[in-house]
Amino acid sequence: MRITYGPWGESLEELTAAARKAEEAGAEVIWVPELHRSATVSAAAVAGAVTRAGVGTAVALAFTRSPMVTALEALDLDELTGGRFILGLGAGTRRLNENWHNVPWNRPLARLRETVEVIRAVVAGGPLAYDGSVQRLDARGLRRPHEPVRTRIPVYLAAVGPQMTRLAGRIADGWLSHELSSPAYLREQVLPNLSAGLDGRERAELDVVVSACCSIDPDPAQARRRAAGVLGFYAGVATYKDFFAFHDLAAEHAAAVAAFRAGEPVVVPDRMIDPLVLAGTPDQVAERLARYEGLADTVKLTPAVYGNAPEEIRRNQARIIELIGTL
């Protein structure tokens, strides 16, 4: 498996410094998310900090920019990285799109497929005309005067549900997991859907990237408590009902959703943490990471962030980067 990393920083300066250290430790790709920062601006900052590692978005929101803007940003980032950029896209949730960004959520499957088709057409240099069921583009006659580094930039898709996962298998260069994704879920739910979506493609054409939230501490109990904030953040989302039910955590998920809707703290018992987060001592985390062998092509390690103080996140991040060096 390839080992990659999603750095954290209170500032862009700290983020890029962590990216540089992760590259020095051996991380092959540096991934940046989109939530409290712009994924493409963060990727541009990281591009100036690393010299060998790839730079990817995990993920940029697919519907909050026009496909044309996303394609142009991808071309610029590919130039900044010398052809090492990976465009990771995700649909997000209905609430995020409609309430946070005021963009449509109707027909997300078709919208994501057509968004990728438009992006690839723009990156390839045209023709810049597209008439889909959701997306439209009419920029005929437009010629970008800048020579691209590549006319095909890898597009990875984040997917949790079966239909989105099959779509990733059918059209993407890689699949990106949710930050919580156990080896059992990968083996029994994700890989069969990816295979069903391949539709004649070779499995080797698809990079299966599992995102693994990581919490390392000499005290395993402290590592689990640090990870609890991440579980609480996601457990309050009703959309993930089937995911938690698969792990025999339906009751805990229902309680978390009810608490979130009531504005109360989400209580996360240890039995929610152990199957879904790499938490423990360095040796315990390395052993749990090894369980993805033969299932994932790439692992993206990220520090547990939600609910933790900056100094706590920094200590954890340093331990993760140290672990990458030993791996």
Rank of each mutant, 00 (worst) to 15 (best):
L180W: 06
G307M: 08
A25W: 06
A45G: 03
V277N: 03
A256T: 10
I273G: 02
R107D: 08
G82K: 11
F63H: 08
P7L: 00
G92A: 10
N308V: 02
R65D: 02
I153S: 07
W100S: 14
A168E: 00
S42Y: 03
Y5D: 03
P220G: 14
V149H: 09
A44T: 07
E264M: 11
A245I: 09
I324K: 00
L278K: 09
L61R: 10
Q222R: 14
A172S: 01
A290W: 00
V123W: 02
A245Q: 11
F246N: 06
E202T: 14
I321P: 00
I86K: 15
E312Q: 04
A19W: 00
L276M: 11
R152T: 14
R271D: 04
L96V: 12
L295R: 01
E98G: 06
L112Y: 00
F63W: 04
E10D: 10
G26N: 09
T239H: 13
M68E: 15
A49G: 01
R84N: 08
E23A: 05
A71Q: 11
H253R: 10
S215L: 06
A49V: 06
E73M: 13
R107K: 13
G200M: 02
L180M: 07
A251H: 13
D297G: 08
G90S: 08
L198P: 04
R107V: 07
D78S: 11
L112E: 01
A22K: 08
W8D: 08
L12N: 12
L167A: 06
R150H: 10
P282L: 10
G197T: 07
R201A: 00
L301M: 06
Q163E: 13
D138P: 07
L176E: 01
A71R: 12
A121F: 11
G197W: 03
P282M: 11
R187Q: 00
E28M: 14
Y234S: 05
E147V: 14
N97Q: 15
R144M: 15
G169N: 05
T281W: 05
G6C: 12
A74H: 00
L167P: 04
P220S: 15
P275M: 09
R203S: 08
L295E: 05
V103D: 01
I153G: 09
L80W: 05
G197L: 06
